[in-house]
C-alpha cells in the first residue's frame, strides 16, 4: 500500500470507526470482542484496499458479519446460551426492564441468528441484501429471522405477550 492509499485508509477509519464499533459491539456482544472483530475486519480491508469498490464501510461491515459467523462456526458452534443471564424481570410492566431483557436475550442468541436480526432491524436492510451479505438464500434469511425471534420469545417469555414480531405473532 502506497503512502496515498495509507492516508486514504487512515482517514476512512478515522471517519467511520465510531459507527463501525457500534455494529461490531452488537455482533460480538462486548467491547473486547467488538474491538477484535473490527480490527480483524479493518485488517482484511486494508489488505484488499486497492480492490475495494464502492463504499469501503459496506465492505468492512460485510467482513465483520462473515467473520463473526465464521468465528462461531470454528469454535464448534459453542452455545451462546451458556452465558444466558438471569432474565428475571423485576418489573414486568416496566418498559425499561423489558428493553433490558430484550437486549440480554439478543446477546444470548447464537451469532448467526443475531447477525440476521442486526442486519434486518439494526441496519434496516432488505432480506435480499441480508442474503447477499451472509451468502445464503432469501429463504434462509426468513427462516433464520423467524427462528431468532422465536428464540427471543423462548428466552424472554414476557415478550410473547408483549410484542408481535414481524417474524410471527406470539
Amino acid at each position: 500500500m502506497n503512502r496515498q492509499a495509507r492516508e486514504d485508509f487512515t482517514q476512512f477509519v478515522a471517519a467511520r470507526s465510531a459507527r463501525l464499533i457500534r455494529t461490531a459491539y452488537v455482533l460480538a456482544g462486548d467491547q473486547h470482542a467488538a474491538e477484535d472483530l473490527l480490527q480483524t475486519a479493518l485488517t482484511r480491508t486494508a489488505a484488499r484496499w486497492r480492490h475495494v469498490r464502492g463504499d469501503p464501510e459496506a465492505y468492512v461491515r460485510r467482513v465483520m458479519y462473515n467473520e463473526q459467523i465464521s468465528r462461531w462456526r470454528r469454535r464448534g458452534r459453542e452455545s451462546a446460551m451458556a452465558d444466558v443471564p438471569d432474565l428475571a424481570v423485576a418489573d414486568r410492566s416496566g418498559e425499561v426492564d423489558l428493553r433490558l431483557a430484550l437486549q440480554r436475550a439478543l446477546l444470548a442468541l447464537p451469532p448467526r441468528k443475531r447477525a440476521v436480526l442486526v442486519l434486518r432491524y439494526f441496519e434496516d436492510l432488505p432480506e435480499k441484501e441480508v442474503a447477499l451479505i451472509l451468502g445464503c438464500s432469501v429463504g434462509t434469511v426468513r427462516s433464520q429471522t423467524h427462528k431468532a425471534l422465536t428464540r427471543l420469545r423462548d428466552i424472554v417469555p414476557d415478550l410473547a405477550t408483549r410484542l408481535e414480531f414481524a417474524g410471527g405473532a406470539a
Partner: peptide
C-alpha cells in the same frame, strides 16, 4: 434494543495503524 446494545460500545483509537 439493538441500538441500546450498540450504545455500550466505546470509541477505539489507533485502529487504522494496527490494521495497516
Amino acid at each position: 434494543a439493538l441500538e441500546g446494545i450498540a450504545d455500550r460500545a466505546e470509541p477505539v483509537d489507533g485502529m487504522a495503524e494496527r490494521a495497516l
